[in-house]
Nucleic acid binder design. Structure first.
Length: 415
RNA sequence: GCGACUAUGGUGUAAUGGUAGCACUACUCCUUGUGGAGGAGUCAGUUCGGGUUCGAAUCCCGAUAGCCGCCCCA
């Protein structure tokens, strides 16, 4: 008889309770931090028409790197590979009634059909936070401040990460000055994106820019001194954000960025990668036929965030959602145990009743293995006295308590 | 899509052409109402397919999977 594999699908994860705990911790910390900055949560379906991604990006990415299929009605459907087109669609659809500025965040799962490797899976959750309708540098600063705050909300210190900032307008100024045409600008931008990784930068730039290459290189090499970038850095410093470096090699892959761009990098050697990134995109919403809405935003993934937190030992210990396990010692007392459990649940205590009827020691051992903080054994004695011996496993202390007294002790996590 | 490396019980590993062992976990018991120790026992494995050989976990070929890098990175 053939067996069905227990492996999960390639590039996706099973979240066993302890994984789910870590995942929820990350999601909740990110969400709460966004809300502390006045951001509202939104969400959407995982499915969107394939054309949404075709119009924004090139066909190659849609065809090769997304999960796209035809539904039974002949429509082309894509599992969202990112949230930005979806949120742009949502904002554009109601642009006349939403009331700007809009501060929105979401934590969707996204799918990309590509080879899995460290920090990159086929399914990941990605925080997206954007401000719609604010054109100035104040919004740029706020977005970076939020990205910074997300890191410190996990307990990260400024030495654990660095924020690399750049601005595409710096390049546009240089292109204007040298006289580069629009088509070539895109190619040079994409070359700049790869600059750190390749050693053929000079020759490739020569092919693209011809005799202008020399002047271009000169200007590009001094781009870091541009007042736009200094201004941004000093405004961030005013807000207490000091782990910022100007890095003109930060370009980011997509064409739609129009101004500030940034990435947050892990400084741990074993995890030297980008944790989050974003920038300003002032014209993206025009593809839906609405007036342009200046927008700045960023995204951060759960996979890279988890790697970061692990690298810096910032993940919390697992805590069971269950407060108390009632260990039933003989079958005759099961209904009494259930009554007690229900009374405690009415007081917002999470209670599991163990019906294994194993020895008390075995049941306590199980509670301990599951990180359940309190146990109470129930048998004939308890029915008679009406009190339960509640035990706090970490301290090994035990106390006789009436049902009404239990809740207070559990809330304070003490006996 | 390209390249490197790896593949042994649920997990982590040993066995370099000659009896597949060990540790952890799980389960049972020592121990009929109080856990983390100890002891005894049980379940459970060479990814799959071919080849070389008297004999293959081991060598060769292929597939698959994992991992890492490249491409890409919204």
């Amino acid at each position: 008889m053939s067996k069905i594999s227990t492996d999960s699908y390639k590039g996706v994860r099973d979240f066993y309770p302890r994984d789910k705990f870590v995942h929820d911790y990350i999601v909740n910390t990110l969400s709460q931090t966004c809300e502390s900055f006045g951001y509202e949560a939104y969400d959407a379906s995982i499915l969107d028409p394939a054309e949404l991604y075709r119009t924004k990006t090139n066909d190659e990415i849609v065809n090769d790197q997304t999960y796209t299929f035809e539904d039974r009605g002949g429509r082309e459907v894509t599992l969202r590979p990112e949230m930005t087109p979806t949120v742009a669609r949502m904002v554009a659809a109601r642009s006349r009634e939403l009331g700007f500025p809009l501060r929105w965040y979401s934590m969707p799962n996204c799918f990309r059909y590509e080879r899995a490797q460290r920090g990159r899976l086929r399914e990941f959750w990605q925080l997206n936070a954007d401000i719609f309708g604010v054109a100035g540098i104040d919004a740029d600063v706020e977005i970076i401040a939020l990205a910074h705050r997300l890191m410190t909300a996990f307990g990260a210190k400024e030495s654990h990460f660095e924020i690399r900032i750049n601005d595409r307008r710096v390049f546009e100024q240089i292109f204007d000055e040298v006289g580069i045409d629009t088509g070539t600008r895109k190619s040079i931008m994409s070359l700049l994106d790869r600059r750190a990784k390749i050693d053929t930068f000079d020759s490739e730039l020569g092919e693209l820019a011809g005799d202008k290459a020399k002047k271009l290189t000169q200007l590009l090499d001094s781009a870091a001194t541009n007042p736009l970038l200094e201004d941004l850095r000093s405004r961030l410093a005013t807000r207490g954000i000091t782990n910022v470096v100007i890095d003109t090699s930060i370009v980011r892959g997509f064409d739609y960025y129009t101004g500030m761009v940034f990435e947050v990098f892990d400084t741990a050697k074993e995890n030297a990668r980008s944790i989050s990134g974003g920038g300003r995109y002032d014209h993206l919403l025009e593809m839906f036929g609405v007036d342009s809405i200046p927008t700045v935003g960023f995204a951060t993934g759960d996979v890279t965030m988890r790697d970061f937190l692990e690298a810096h030992n910032l993940l919390p210990e697992y805590v069971s959602p269950t407060d108390l396990m009632i260990c039933v010692l003989d079958k005759d007392t099961t209904s009494f145990a259930n009554e007690v459990a229900q009374k405690l649940r009415d007081q917002d205590i999470n209670v599991a009743v163990n019906y294994s009827y194993k020895k008390a020691g075995d049941q306590i051992k199980l509670a301990d293995k599951k990180n359940i903080p309190f146990v109470a054994c129930v048998g004939a004695q308890e029915i008679e006295s009406g009190k339960l011996a509640v035990k706090h496993l970490a301290s090994r202390e035990e106390k006789e308590l009436s049902v009404d007294e239990i809740a207070d002790h559990i809330f304070t996590h003490e006996l």
